[in-house]
C-alpha cells in the first residue's frame, strides 16, 4: 500500500516538482496551497507525512504545523519543512513547532526521497 504525503506550498511550480518527485517513487500526493488549505485537506485524510513550505499567505508553515500537531490524529505525523529559509532561528522555530526535518530549497529529488523514506522508516 502506497504512503500518502501532504505537500503544502503556495508556489504551484514547487508543488508540481515535489509531487512529481514523490509520485515517481510510488507515493500518493495531496496538495495544498497554504496552511489554511492544508488544515482543510487534512480532515478525514490518512496522511503519512507532510512536506510544508514556511512562507505562505493566509497561514504560514510554522503556524500550520503547530495547529496540525494539536490534532490527535496528526500529532505524530512527521513533517519536513521545505523552504528558502535557512537561518538557525527559523529552523529552531520549525523544530519547536514539531517538524522532524528541514530542507533548504532548491531540493535534490534523490535527497528529498531519501529523507522521506528515512522518516517513514521505509
Amino acid at each position: 500500500m502506497s504512503k500518502t504525503v501532504l505537500v503544502v506550498d503556495d508556489s504551484s511550480s514547487m508543488r508540481n516538482l515535489v509531487s512529481m518527485t514523490l509520485t515517481d517513487d510510488g507515493f500518493e500526493v495531496i496538495e495544498a496551497c497554504d496552511g489554511r488549505d492544508a488544515l482543510q485537506k487534512l480532515s478525514g485524510q490518512k496522511i503519512h507525512l507532510v512536506i510544508s513550505d514556511v512562507n505562505m499567505p493566509n497561514m504560514d508553515g510554522i503556524t500550520f504545523v503547530t495547529e496540525m500537531k494539536k490534532l490527535p490524529a496528526y500529532k505524530f505525523v512527521p513533517v519536513v519543512m521545505l523552504t528558502t529559509e535557512g537561518s538557525d532561528e527559523k529552523k529552531k522555530a520549525g523544530q519547536a513547532a514539531g517538524a522532524k526535518a528541514w530542507v533548504v530549497k532548491p531540493f535534490q529529488p534523490a535527497q528529498l526521497l531519501a529523507g522521506v523514506r528515512k522518516l517513514l522508516m521505509m
Binding site: K91, W102, G115
Partner: peptide, 26 residues
Amino acid sequence: YTTMEQFDAEHPSAQAPVESTEMTFF
C-alpha cells in the same frame, strides 16, 4: 528576506548558481 542570497547579494558567491543542501534532521 527569505533567501540567503538576498543578504549576500553583493557578495561574489551570490552570482553562482544556487546549490541544493543536505536535509537537516531534528
